[in-house]
Design a protein around this nucleic acid. Structure first.
Lengths: 180, 180
DNA sequence: GAATACATGTAAAATGTTACATGATTTT
DNA sequence: AAAATCATGTAACATTTTACATGTATTC
């Protein structure tokens, strides 16, 4: 699936694995993320499958850049994937909930601390979506050929915002019940 | 991490890999899930590490059962994990959002169809949390020695409920904006 | 008569994480 | 003087998914 994230970005414009990581961190990390090493490995595989092509741009004083661009075959594959509807609900994994589920023998004080830590982490995340991510999207949508993309980027950002608000609400509710 | 889900359940009572799968599907699938094959593989590893022990119970007409029970070492490991606070925000992966992010060139009609499919899938999931999962928890909490656990199980179920409500709200909001 | 439940697992592939390695330039 | 940024990657490991294989008993 990372495959399609990379093809999606390369469909905008050619760039390096390093650039792709920056873009993902700034825009899709809310719903899709990857480590730098995985991005490099996946790009290599995409090139083998001829969905992307690369060339090296020599640089002085800095490491050379390997710039990837999407091929016609890559565009078709991406288009194909985009047009297929998602037919399932994505399963979640939430360590904190797993812990909480088995926490009946822990002290309530310890659990409350856990929850308060999560609350502040999710508050930070929420603020990031509301400020930083929002700005990044606004900047990119400013250019004319990217304006149409802005609507969709904003929809995904909004999801992150709603998610974090929901999470904080759930923590507050749970803390309240435990304090009774 | 599946490791701790299995230890957590085995800390209630000894059971087979098959039983563990049933329990997880009925209770933790909202925030932690695993395939049957992964459960068997993980149990094998847990036994090698002496965190669980197993014995075979012969059966007639049905395959023999391999019943696992947690060891003292396993209990300590679980306890240790439970007492450590979670210090990060769990990253999500949402295929639909990834698709939506890159969908500016798709027809609005196609995207709306995508969103409507997701809406109905998440509505089903929400209802499951509100009815089936709620009942399962009520049943298990009925026995005296499990009553205290019920509070925590309910908190995790509530998370699923809030999540699905949020998701549906987001879909509705997004559909509305696209229809403008 | 067909499908589901019960119960176990193996093998291969895909995916993702962690740790390591290099080295100049720029910022703190 | 130390840390972060730019830029690449490899290797080992861990986790997860998919597909295969088996066979009885019960339910529809």
């Amino acid at each position: 699936m990372l495959k399609y994230a990379l093809l999606g970005f390369l469909n905008y414009t050619p760039m390096t694995g390093y650039d792709l990581k920056q873009f993902m961190d700034a825009s899709t990390s809310n719903f899709w993320h990857a480590k730098q090493s995985q991005i490099y490995a996946t790009l290599k595989k995409l090139e083998q499958d001829e969905l992307v092509r690369s060339h090296v741009e020599p640089q002085e004083g800095r490491p050379d850049r390997r710039v990837y661009q999407i091929t016609e075959k890559g565009r078709e594959d991406l288009q194909d994937w985009l047009s297929q509807p998602v037919m399932d609900v994505e399963p979640r994994k939430e360590k904190l909930l797993l812990k909480l589920f088995f926490s009946a023998d822990q002290s309530v004080e310890k659990i409350l601390t856990q929850l308060r830590i999560q609350r502040s982490l999710h508050e930070e995340t929420l603020e990031r979506y509301q400020n930083q991510t929002k700005e990044v999207i606004a900047q990119f949508s400013a250019s004319e050929d990217m304006a149409e993309h802005g609507r969709y980027w904003e929809a995904t950002r909004r999801f992150g915002e709603l998610y974090e608000e929901m999470y904080i609400r759930w923590v507050d509710e749970t803390i309240e019940k435990l304090e009774e």
